[in-house]
Design a protein around this nucleic acid. Structure first.
Lengths: 188, 188
DNA sequence: GTCTATAAAAAGATAGAC
DNA sequence: GTCTATCTTTTTATAGAC
C-alpha cells in the first residue's frame, strides 16, 4: 500500500470521528463506532492511532480545519457587520442539527473538560481562534470594547445552542439569531 | 434499621451524586465514585437504586430541589429588576466553581442528551422551571417579549459558563455579568 | 438491612497471522 | 500494511453471607 492510501484512511478515521463524536459524544463513542463509520476494521485503528486519545486529538484538529475554512469563507462580505451576520446565519442554518446534537465545538469542549488528558486545551485553542475572529470584526467596527462584545456574542451562541439542544427546539435558535442581528445593527 | 436511616442513606447518595456528577461528568463517574463520596459501600448502592440510571435520576431531582430553593430565595427583592440582578450575582458568585466544572445544570443537560435513556427530558424540565421564573420577571416588568428576553438572558448565562469553563477564566463570567446587569437596567 | 465477593458485559489495547 | 483473534481492565450488576 502507498503512503497516500495510508493518509487517506487516517483522514477518513479522523473525519468520521468528528461526525460520530458530535452525534454520540466522546464517552459514549467506542473505537468500533468510529471504525464502522470510516469503513475500517476495528483492530486496524491502532495502526493509525496508538490510543483513543490520539484519535480524538486528530478529530479536534480536523474540526479546527473545518472552522478555519468557515472563517475564510466569512471574509467575503465587505463590512464587519455583514460578516458577523453571515456567521449568525450560518449558525441558524444548522439549527436542526444543533437541536439534535448541540454545537459540535461546545459539546466537545464541555465533555473534554471532564477528562484528565490535555485534550480540553486543544479544543479551547480551536474555539479561541473563532472568538478572536469575532473580536477582529468588532474592532474593525471601531469598538474599543471589541473583546467584551465578542465574548457576549459567542456566549449567546453557545448558550442558545445548548437551549436549542436541551429543549429540542430549532425555533429558539432562529429567534435568538434574529435578536442578535438587530443587536449588531444597533451597534453601528 | 429504621426507615429514617434508610432515607438518610438514599438522600446522601443522591446528594453526593449531584456533586460528583458535576465535577466528573456522568460518563466518567462510576458508582464506586459516588459511593465513596457518600461514604456507602459500593455493593450497597444497589439496595437503594436498582440501576445507575435511577441514581442519576435521583441526582437530577435533588439538583432540581436545590434550584427551587434558590428561586424561592430570589423572590425576596422588591422589583423584578432586582430579582434578576440577584440571580446574576448568584451566578457570578460561583464563577470559580464554574471555571473548574461548568454550570451544573448545563453540563448535565449537554451530557444527558447523548444518552438514549430518557434522562435528558428530566433535566430539561428542571432547566425549564428556572427559565419560566426568569420569564415571569420580565413579564412583571411589563415586557411583551418576556419569553424572548428570558431565553436571551439564560442563553447568555449558559454560554458564558461554557466559555468560563473552556478557558478556565472566572473573569469572563464577571465581565459578562456586569454587561448583563447594564442590559437589564436599560430595559426599564 | 448491610455488606463482600464475584459474575457478566463492554471497551480499550495488543499479538501475531497474512 | 492490513486484519482477526484475544487479552486486560474497568464497571455495572447480582448472589448470598451476615
Amino acid at each position: 500500500m502507498t503512503n497516500s492510501t495510508r493518509a487517506g484512511k487516517r483522514e477518513r478515521l479522523a473525519g468520521a470521528a468528528v461526525r460520530v463524536l458530535h452525534e454520540q459524544g466522546v464517552e459514549k463513542t467506542t473505537l468500533a463506532d468510529i471504525a464502522r463509520a470510516a469503513d475500517v476494521p476495528v483492530g486496524n485503528v491502532y495502526y493509525y492511532f496508538k490510543t483513543k486519545d490520539q484519535l480524538i486529538e486528530a478529530a479536534i484538529e480536523a474540526h479546527g480545519h473545518e472552522l478555519d475554512s468557515m472563517i475564510e469563507a466569512l471574509e467575503r462580505p465587505a463590512t464587519p457587520q455583514e460578516r458577523l451576520k453571515a456567521l449568525l446565519r450560518g449558525w441558524i442554518g444548522h439549527s436542526d442539527l444543533t437541536a439534535r446534537y448541540g454545537c459540535p465545538t461546545g459539546t466537545l469542549a464541555s465533555e473534554l473538560d471532564k477528562r484528565d488528558d490535555g485534550l480540553d486545551r486543544a479544543i479551547a485553542k480551536v474555539m479561541g481562534r473563532l472568538l478572536d475572529w469575532v473580536e477582529a470584526q468588532f474592532a474593525a467596527m471601531g469598538r474599543q470594547d471589541a473583546r467584551e462584545l465578542a465574548v457576549a456574542l459567542f456566549a449567546s451562541y453557545q448558550g442558545i445552542a445548548l437551549l436549542t439542544n436541551t429543549f429540542r427546539d430549532p425555533g429558539l435558535m432562529a429567534m435568538e439569531g434574529r435578536r442578535l442581528e438587530r443587536w449588531i445593527d444597533s451597534l453601528s
